[in-house]
Design a protein around this nucleic acid. Structure first.
Length: 481
RNA sequence: CGGGGUGUAGCGCAGUUUGGUUAGCGCACCUGCUUUGGGAGCAGGGGGCCGGAGGUUCAAAUCCUCUCACCCCGACCA
């Protein structure tokens, strides 16, 4: 079974990655285009994936003491403009509501591009004493950003996400929160549940969130060598507290501004799953979030049809206690057609049951990550599947991890840097003096930006990849989505 | 927002250069029969304001003007 032998409906991943991506999104039935530019429908199969992702992440968010709430979609202009850097950052992509019915509004309303402003204004009402802190709130919501160039999941005008907003009584607690989200919540979620390995680190000031003191980020390598920002966690310092007047009396009866954080991940990660795990045949779903973990395909012949179907239904019922199972008993399609379709949709394990298998009390099973057929005794089915789900999850993570590591290259010379960006992409690790000028110039030359500053301590000094000035700060560059 | 490209059936396209029968093909869809262990076969059938608006002409998918949408490449962004 060679790659690409069966599925001809999707473009070649190597030759036309972005077409391949669109084909997979459409053919795997994750999403569809609509009448409104940049606004996609997330179809049931794609939405089921998102719901599983939400569940995994929501659990972790709640386990770290956060509670969910819901804030308004509309933000009065006067509120949005309170934090100067914030407005400036988001102004070009804000959608405005100017009328209610036929009546022009006194003040126009922004459709939230993010909720710092509206939430900040409410925290200011809720926080009076150090005893009111911390406030640890998360919301699942839709967001609108008027993008010029859109792509399903990766960049859409409206998208779904989760945004956490917390307020703390001191700087240290806020910083701890920012890091806890980064490492204990997001990194765990993205690596363990989505099987996507990431580099974590701080953003350069060019790349940080508009209005933040600093931003931590998780960066993932995609199948074409470009980099996807998978999540961000911002320490907002007292910037937003000052803009929105979030004040409290501390233990020493002194008035202070609160220290706030915010953090988010979005439906963009669906795109990440596609681009990290997918292959020539389509999607590969990590078992933990796969909408369907096991698909059963009955092999039907006239004489044995009824008994095989009955057996298949029994299997469906038994397995459903442990797994997300789908029985594909559609009459109009041949088994071969179904094999290809479910492979395109990335279902981790396929079971085939036919008369031959029934006679031997077994099923034929195929792992999406391996592709070869094996037979499993019915009595061992559940235990084998349990083990397989874990194996597949690990296997997806490990192969992505190997690819990531192979694609982190150190560059000491700028010529070397440019060559890597021309020919290989991936991450380039290099010294950087800290000057935004060097960063901008590198971007102009190579389209690569600083994805993040390396987290690990570094005692050695090196030379800035661009200007040659001495520096001890190592950073990762890459071409971003 | 600049450069390029494409709009014809649900999808993918041909037809446009050189205007002229009833606009065609593949896939998908519907009906029936035979099939079903890696995208089944045959027979029959349905589906179109040729992106939209104006014009030129006896006659426009085809020529002219304007418009809209989408895609790719560059400048900005979760």
């Amino acid at each position: 079974m060679n790659d690409g032998e069966f599925v001809k409906e999707i473009a070649s991943k190597d030759e036309a990655f972005s077409q391949w991506y669109i084909d997979v999104v459409k053919k795997a039935d994750l999403a569809d285009y609509t009448m409104v530019k940049g606004c996609m429908v997330i179809k049931p199969y794609g939405y089921a994936l998102w719901e599983n992702m939400q569940q995994c992440l929501d659990k972790k968010i709640k386990a770290t003491g956060h509670k969910n709430a819901y804030f308004p979609l509309f933000i009065p202009e006067s509120l949005l403009t309170k934090e100067a850097e914030h407005v400036e950052g988001f102004a070009p992509e804000v959608a405005w509501v100017t009328h209610g019915g036929e009546q022009k509004l006194e003040e126009r309303l922004a459709v939230r591009p993010t909720s710092e402003a509206i939430i900040g204004s409410l925290y200011s009402k809720w926080v009076h004493s150090w005893r009111d802190l911390p406030i640890l709130i998360n919301q699942w919501a839709n967001i609108v950003r008027w993008e010029k160039v859109t792509r399903p999941f990766l960049r859409t005008t409206e998208f779904l996400w989760q945004e956490g907003h917390t307020a703390h009584k001191n700087q240290q607690e806020a910083e701890e929160e920012t890091l806890k989200i980064l490492l204990d919540v997001y990194k765990e979620y993205i690596e363990k549940d989505l099987a996507i390995p990431v580099l974590v680190g701080k953003k350069s000031s060019n790349e940080k969130f508009a209005g933040a003191v600093h931003t931590y980020t998780l960066e993932a390598l995609m199948g074409d060598g470009k980099i996807l920002q998978a999540g961000t966690s911002h320490n907002l310092g007292q910037n937003f507290a000052k803009a929105f007047d979030i004040r409290f009396l501390d233990e020493n009866q002194e008035e202070q501004y609160a220290w706030t954080t915010s953090w988010g991940t979005s439906t963009r990660l669906v795109g990440g799953i596609i681009m990290v795990h997918g292959d020539e045949r389509g999607l590969k779903m990590p078992p933990k979030v796969a909408p369907v973990q096991v698909v059963i395909i009955p092999i039907l012949f006239d004489k044995t049809k009824q008994e095989v179907l009955k057996k298949a239904r029994e299997l469906e019922t038994t397995l459903s206690e442990k797994f997300r199972v789908e029985l594909d008993d559609r009459d109009a399609y041949t088994p071969g057609w179904k094999f290809n379709e479910w492979e395109m949709k990335g279902v981790p394990v396929r079971l085939e049951i036919g008369p031959r298998d029934m006679a031997n009390s077994q099923v034929v099973a195929v792992r999406r990550d391996k592709g070869n057929k094996t037979t499993i005794k019915e009595t061992e089915l559940i235990s084998t599947l349990e083990k397989w789900m874990e194996d597949i999850q690990n296997n997806l993570y490990m192969s992505a991890k190997v690819k990531l590591e192979e694609n982190i290259r150190f560059a000491g010379q700028y010529s070397e840097f440019k060559e890597i960006m021309e020919e290989k992409l991936g991450f380039v690790k290099a010294y950087w003096c800290g000057s935004p000028k060097c960063e901008d110039q590198i971007k102009k030359d190579t389209k690569a930006t600083i994805r993040c500053l390396a987290m690990e301590e570094n005692d050695e000094k090196g030379k800035c990849i661009y200007c040659g000035k001495e520096s001890s700060s190592l950073v990762y560059f890459g071409r971003a989505y």
